[in-house]
Computed example of a mutant assay.
Amino acid sequence: MSTVGAESGGSRRYTLGDWNNRSSVRNKKTLYALPPAAEVQLQLRTKGWFPPSFIHYFAHPTIEQASEQTRHRLAANHLVYFLNYTTILEHKIVNRAVETLIHDELRIELPHAMKIAALQLYTDEGYHALFSYELAEQVARFYQMPPWDVPPKRIRLLLDLLDTASDESRPLLWFLVGFVSETIIAKELLDLTGDTLVSTVYQMFREHLEDEARHSRYFSEVFQYLWPRLSSTQQLASASHLIDIILVFSEVDEQWLAASLAGAGISAAEAEHVIQHIVAPQARARRARAGATTTLQAMKRAGFFEQQAHRELFSVAGLIDA
Results as ranks from 00 to 15, higher is better:
P61K: 02
L313D: 10
L257A: 01
F175E: 02
I278F: 00
A33L: 11
P146V: 09
P111Y: 01
L192Y: 10
K187P: 06
N77K: 12
H310P: 07
L119D: 03
A317T: 07
W49P: 13
A113H: 13
P111V: 01
L34S: 04
L162D: 15
V201A: 13
T86V: 11
H208G: 06
L34Y: 02
Y57R: 04
A258P: 00
G5L: 06
E182Y: 05
P151L: 05
V222T: 13
A97D: 08
A259Y: 01
H241V: 06
I245P: 09
E312Y: 07
P52F: 06
S169V: 00
H112E: 00
I63S: 05
V94M: 10
G318V: 03
T123S: 14
Q65M: 07
T164Q: 15
L42V: 05
A262H: 04
Y81P: 01
N84A: 01
A271G: 15
I246Y: 02
R287D: 01
S24Y: 02
V94E: 12
Q282H: 07
F314Q: 10
T123M: 08
R301L: 15
H56Q: 02
L42M: 09
H103L: 05
M299G: 14
R73F: 06
E90H: 05
E312S: 10
R289K: 15
H215I: 08
R141G: 10
V248T: 11
L74K: 09
E64L: 10
P52G: 08
F314N: 10
F54I: 09
F142A: 14
L296F: 06
E207M: 06
V4W: 05
V40R: 09
A302S: 14
I155S: 05
E90R: 03
R22S: 11
R217T: 08
T62L: 01
G318E: 01
K29P: 00
A38F: 05
H112R: 03
H103G: 01
A292Q: 12
P151A: 12
